[in-house]
Design a protein around this nucleic acid. Sequence first.
DNA 1: AGTACGAATTGTATT
DNA 2: AATTCGTACT
Length: 905
Amino acid sequence: MRGTLGDGLNSAQRTAVTTLSGPLLVLAGAGTGKTRVITFRIAELIRGGTKPNRILAVTFTNKAAREMKERTSQLLGRKKKGEAGPEVSTFHSLCVRVLRRHARTLGYPEHFSIYDRGDQESLARSALRDVRVGHEKLRPSDLLHKVSGWKSQGITAKEAEGLVSKDTDLLAVMAYGRYEALLRASGAMDFDDLLLNTERLFREHPEARFAEESRFDHLLIDEYQDTNGLQYQIVKALASRHRNLCVVGDDDQSIYGFRGAEVEHILHFKSDWPDAKVVRLEDNYRCTEWIIHLANNLIAHNKARHDKVLRAARGRGVAPRFLAFEDEESEADAIAAEIHGKINRQDDERIPASHIAILFRTNEQPRAFEQALRRAGIPYVLVGGQSFFDRKEIKDLLSYLRVLANPLDEVSLLRIINTPARGIGTSSIEALLKKAVEEGAPLMKVLPDAPKIASVSQPAANAIGEFLALLDEFRARSRRELLSQWFPEFLARVNYKAEIERQYKDPSEQETRWNTVEQLLNSIVTYENRSESPSLIGFVEETTLMSQGDDDDDDKRREHSVTLMTLHSAKGLEFPEVYLVGMEEGILPHKRSVIEQISHGSSAIDEERRLAYVGVTRAQNVLTLSYAKGRMKWGKLRNQLPSRFLLEMRGQTDKSQEIAQLAVEQLSREIERAEAKAETEPKGKGKGKKSASPRKKSGDEGPSDAPVQAVRRKKFDSNGQKVPSVTARPAPPPVPPPAPPKAASSESAAVSPPSPVAPPSAVSPAIPSAPLAPGATPEIAPPVAPPAPPIASAVPAAPVTPPAAAAPPIMPPAAAPPATPPAAAAPPATPPAAPSVAPPTAPSVAPPAAAAPPATPPAAAAPPIISAPAPAVERPAPAPSHPRRPDPPRFVQVSLFGDLEPPRK
DNA sequence: AGTACGAATTGTATT
DNA sequence: AATTCGTACT
Ligand SMILES: Nc1ncnc2c1ncn2[C@@H]1O[C@H](COP(=O)(O)OP(=O)(O)OP(=O)(O)O)[C@@H](O)[C@H]1O
């Protein structure tokens, strides 16, 4: 099937693939083959005689880049050995390559460091300290968010000054300036700088731009809807000479607005490139008709969008399922059990684990799933999230490497100077920093002078001497030898193992920690084998630019594992079976988006909807959406509402609006409570000694930010229309000496795992949190039953054939036969095996399952939907009378919303 | 001076 | 949960 081009392309696709010059836009919905167009087009260019290395394709993730490389080489058959393929990379790695070539031009060291989120936070903290802004006023993460916003619009600190008025913003601007200075002094760039500096390079240094734009004759960009202003400029700069620019994207899948992406770039492509050819694709080849139906229903709720047709090229398929669970553990356990069944079947319905993905919104969600999957013995790969490279050990060691490569790198230097503890305490470090500031020299430069500084103790000075000797020795070796050759010895010399043993008392924890160090060595070796010209800097760079689950090792593991990832990372991918979990108000329309929308009137929720749309359209055959009615948060059980998006997909618009309304009310109540609490105990911050004490502290709170207040203003507008006038802000003295870094003070382990509190186990049979529920709820329930009278009655009661296949393996012996297709056809009210099985095992299981039918007879399906709008439910979970018993995937009853209206036609 | 421990606080998404 | 701060110990 590789032979002729045109195999596997419809006519619109073929048009795009064979338009080989000039600007070209493919604007089309999910799964219509946009990425395929890019791949085929690259192949076609090469067949037509274009040299592969004259083609640059830009993707959004490293994973996507690898995939594209692979697919093109498949299309082209074996490529001649030694011949370079097309260049496929992400914007960020492209920029790094450009910048390494021109770093000096911009005044950076050639081996500039790249700061990831963690490094940025350290720096932001220093910056805030330097401008004397307490972190109650502005947290490092808030600062970074603002700074990133400015940077991705190309706004400098100086320019920003004229643009802001709120005084927290002014503080932020000052901190921004300081932050930039610190970055510069460290010879480091953050992620935004990679783009910003590239753009600047092209703008201010025509010769550099010329050199770079001359490297390629064709430029192709995937996911163009998610480019930000800088990326847009970079694209323009690179394409304006040859004009062979092909961009592909879908405005409905624009999900990176939070980091400055603007859909306008794709929507206005035609005006930027008036001679552009525009191709639209309308046939979705990925999903079943059912899935497309839901996706279309959903996305239609977004007002501002480029309307497009999206129709399924495939058959109807099975009806997606909507499941409700008592809490996140039940959700995870039940899904794990179901997956276990699917991947362990012996008949031909068996599904490989790699065909299954669990998708979620936030990074805290996978925890329950990881546990459940592990208990069930299901192999999985968690993509993204807390990266391997984010672990403390790894960061420590990488910091050594970075300092070896770039001695200016202050964040890394401060991290390692006393790690392992070698007797260089905070006061010594402070003195050194002070001296560095006085001399305007980098910290590293003043270290040799340590003995001459009075406030540096003798032992500390000696320790510094040894530290420097160590660095010198290995810096020299790093010039001659491969990293893998000297790294083991380096570990020994640093005595990092002893550090781990000192820090962690628990032997098993010591072992895991040390294991991660060994894994680091592995990944060094892997890198050196793969890379054409391995280098210290190259390795460090890769670790910062690639997140976990993004290297080829993970690709391999994924071949036999279930994939867990966020919706954001799932963009562009597809899986035969998808579980979209945690579909709840507050999570999928994320709380913050709701707040932002009602306070700033933005369209933050639309972006959440797009996220849901992306999620739904990842599924090829089977889609399961689930939510938990309650969720543990900060040790308290919190009731959750089902996501409005679930209802929108189902065509129950009125229901979804009610939910939206409830969600807002709930949020308002929460905010109100938080404020009340904040005002009752303002004494908390009794640190009176702060010289710059802002006297505005009294009466009504400070000036600041917090969306919280904004909401309050909107919603309870009553009296409070005090416009936060810009009072005299505490002018921070210019450049006070940088604050001392915190000595590595890590605490020990030994915290016994707080046994996950048992869910409301025996409590509340049918989870009628009745007392608190505002009257509204009950009435809302009934109408939920969809406009499908015929089956309607049957459905509510009918718990979906519970994870049919799920149980077999572990629970009943001969339960194999189930497999009742998930279609709505299932026999009514047969709370299957569940009850009978559950009781003995887990107490927490029984109630929902068994209780449901009796307690809430007819409308059984409905209540769960709105059961718990009350905000203040937080009942402390019952005592840990829960036998810690992880083994059997607990089997939990699920319920339906009601009937689903099938795709028309 | 340096380190260890406990308490308190707060948590979108990603290159 | 992870970090940071305050406090007490070596
Ligand atoms: N003409 C075609 N015939 C058969 N299958 C196709 C055709 N075009 C695309 N496909 C298949 O449809 C699926 C989706 O394709 P692709 O990933 O390129 O879509 P996309 O538009 O990039 O999707 P998304 O917007 O979700 O990233 C892939 O499995 C692809 O192989």
